[in-house]
């Protein structure tokens, strides 16, 4: 997935308040957003994560590292 598309989809799916995001944007995942993020990762990247995998994911960059750099251009 292209980076720009990824940022847009993440922004929309998690209903983030920012108007735009990039790698450096902070990410504070609420309990309501956890399932959304899990389904987002499953649907778009075929990645099944556990809650413990999301601990420490406090920025978009960290999330991109979790997904794998090869999956986002």
């Amino acid at each position: 997935m292209e980076k720009v598309v990824f940022f847009k989809k993440l922004l929309a799916e998690l209903e983030l308040e920012e108007s735009e995001i990039d790698e450096s944007s902070p990410l504070h995942i609420t309990s309501l957003q956890t399932l959304t993020l899990m389904s987002f990762l499953d649907e778009h990247f075929g990645i099944r994560v556990k809650v413990k995998d999301l601990i420490g994911i406090e920025s978009v960059r960290k999330l991109m590292e979790l997904i794998g750099k090869d999956k986002i251009d």
Binding site: S31, L35, M38, R48, K50, V51
Partner: peptide, 12 residues
């Protein structure tokens, strides 16, 4: 209830 784990279970 571990909601995310139940979610994973249902998807599996």
């Amino acid at each position: 209830m571990n909601g995310p784990e139940i979610f994973n279970f249902t998807l599996d």
